[in-house]
Amino acid sequence: QGDIVVALYPYDGIHPDDLSFKKGEKMKVLEEHGEWWKAKSLLTKKEGFIPSNYVAKLN
């Protein structure tokens, strides 16, 4: 089961498979690959890669 993270900063995706998000948006982490994680937005239901240093895990 994936962790839920919250965006600390907004992110505008650079690549087509990036997931753009707004500050405060919550996402479910699907896979962790070093600095880039695959996640699904709980708001938009879209999936893509996010920079892990832009988010914090919720406990």
Rank of each mutant, 00 (worst) to 15 (best):
Q1V: 15
Q1C: 15
Q1K: 14
Q1R: 13
Q1G: 12
G2P: 10
G2W: 13
G2D: 11
D3W: 15
D3E: 12
D3F: 15
D3H: 15
I4E: 05
V6L: 06
A7G: 08
A7P: 01
A7V: 02
A7M: 02
A7Y: 00
L8Y: 04
Y9M: 11
Y9R: 13
P10N: 15
P10G: 11
P10V: 06
P10I: 05
Y11H: 05
Y11N: 03
D12C: 14
G13Q: 06
G13I: 03
G13Y: 02
I14F: 09
I14T: 12
I14K: 13
I14Q: 12
I14R: 12
I14S: 09
H15G: 13
H15M: 08
H15Q: 10
H15P: 13
P16E: 10
P16R: 08
D17K: 11
D17S: 12
D17Q: 12
D18S: 12
D18T: 13
D18H: 15
D18W: 10
D18G: 10
L19Y: 03
L19C: 03
L19D: 00
L19M: 06
L19A: 02
S20W: 04
S20I: 06
S20H: 07
F21W: 01
G24K: 02
G24C: 12
G24L: 04
G24D: 06
E25I: 01
E25R: 01
E25M: 02
E25W: 03
E25S: 02
K26M: 15
K26N: 07
K26V: 14
K26E: 08
K26R: 14
K26F: 15
K26C: 15
K26T: 10
K26A: 08
M27C: 02
M27T: 00
M27R: 00
K28N: 06
V29Y: 02
L30A: 03
L30N: 03
L30C: 07
E31D: 09
E31C: 13
E31R: 07
E31A: 11
E31N: 07
H33G: 10
H33I: 10
H33A: 09
H33R: 11
H33M: 10
G34H: 05
G34N: 07
G34M: 05
G34I: 04
E35P: 12
E35M: 12
W36I: 10
W36Y: 12
W37K: 13
W37I: 14
W37S: 07
W37G: 03
K38E: 06
K38V: 12
A39P: 00
A39K: 01
A39Q: 00
K40N: 04
K40V: 14
K40P: 01
K40E: 10
S41R: 02
S41M: 04
L42H: 04
L43D: 10
L43F: 09
T44F: 02
T44V: 02
T44L: 02
T44S: 09
T44A: 03
K45E: 14
K46E: 09
E47Y: 07
E47F: 06
E47G: 04
E47M: 10
G48Q: 00
F49N: 10
I50M: 03
I50C: 03
I50L: 05
P51F: 04
P51K: 05
S52K: 15
S52L: 06
S52Y: 08
S52E: 05
N53W: 15
N53D: 11
Y54E: 03
V55W: 02
A56V: 15
A56G: 08
K57R: 14
K57A: 09
K57W: 13
L58R: 04
L58V: 13
L58Q: 07
N59K: 11
N59I: 13
N59Q: 11
